Simulated scan of single mutants.
Amino acid sequence: MLARAALSLRLRTADLRDRVTGRADALVPPRRLEHIGHSDFVATGDEFARHFVALGGLRPSDRVLDVGCGIGRMARPLTALLGPDGSYDGFDIDPSGVDWCREHYAAFPRFRFQAVDVANPRYNPGGALAAHAFRFPYEDGAFDFVLLTSVFTHLLPGDVDHYLAEIARVLAPGGRLFATFFLLDDEARALVAAGRSSLAFRLDARSDGLPPGDENHAVVDPEIPEEAVAFATAWVGAALARHGLREAGRHPGSWCGRAAFTSYQDILCAERPH
């Protein structure tokens, strides 16, 4: 209780400092709402906006779906990238973040936000819907560009597989997927085993009853496996193919201690063929 009160006081003090120094603007939420993710809100959003264009092929006319939109970290820079023919929809399991976005994006009628009550032991333990059974609240082929940042890193294999099926369903032919992962290729496994990774994935143990020797995924915390989840690249590739998605680019992250990287998490791009 005392720790929570101290954190609240620090964040509110930071909010006051932001107003004095000019950091605050209509689409940057108060720091006390930034409870998911620890990177700088503006810098991270701007970084990924560049990646959406350069790596994912985002176009001004695209209909964009942001899975796990949070408090608008990715929505804010997209207000400048999407043109009058483009649109943005985002959903998230945090209703307070969605409410904040609905209020502050009122001047952008083509930006829409929904709260969904999907269960996640880390972020929404009391959620009514299981992730592996959740149907995205959109029609088939409704989007040209689907993005997920720091979502698959908190889902287990069955949930990821289901989300990929839903992504394939809501993508129009020729549509593109942009997603971040912790991907376990040979280099990442070696760096994790050598203790170079910022996340201590348990490569020699499973947390969910999978048989010994299964190498599809690894977690950091067996008590709360969704805290951080890494996937074998071969498993991800097979899951994409299973749902009719074709990999279109893989860009390594620094999380495991690589010397050359694009961002912190690995970035994977895919497309739904025409």
Score class of each variant (00 low, 15 high):
L2P: 04
A6H: 13
R12N: 13
T21I: 07
D25C: 09
D25A: 13
L27G: 05
P29K: 06
I36A: 07
A43D: 01
F48Q: 01
A49L: 03
R50L: 14
L55Q: 11
G57I: 09
L58A: 07
D62A: 09
D66Y: 08
D66C: 12
C69G: 11
R76F: 00
L78Q: 09
Y88N: 12
D89C: 12
G90A: 11
I93V: 15
W100P: 06
C101Y: 03
E103F: 03
Y105E: 01
A106S: 15
Q114M: 00
Q114K: 01
V116H: 09
V116G: 10
D117G: 03
V118Y: 00
A119H: 14
N120W: 05
N120F: 03
P121N: 09
Y123H: 09
P125S: 14
P125A: 13
A128V: 11
A130I: 03
A130M: 06
H132Q: 15
A133D: 13
P137A: 11
G141A: 14
A142M: 15
F143L: 05
D144F: 03
F145P: 02
V146N: 02
V146H: 02
L147S: 07
T149M: 09
S150M: 00
L155H: 00
D159A: 15
L164Q: 03
A165P: 00
E166A: 10
R169P: 01
L171C: 05
P173Y: 07
R176H: 11
L177D: 00
F178P: 05
F181A: 04
L183M: 07
D185V: 13
A188E: 10
A190F: 05
A190T: 15
V192L: 00
A193R: 13
G195R: 10
G195I: 07
A200E: 10
L203S: 12
D204Q: 11
A205M: 06
R206S: 15
D208I: 04
H217F: 12
D221S: 13
P222K: 12
E223M: 05
E223A: 15
I224S: 03
I224A: 02
A230K: 05
A232C: 11
A234Y: 05
A234N: 13
W235Q: 08
V236S: 00
G237P: 07
L240Y: 06
R246Y: 03
E247R: 12
R250Q: 08
C256Q: 04
Q265T: 05
D266G: 00
P273H: 12
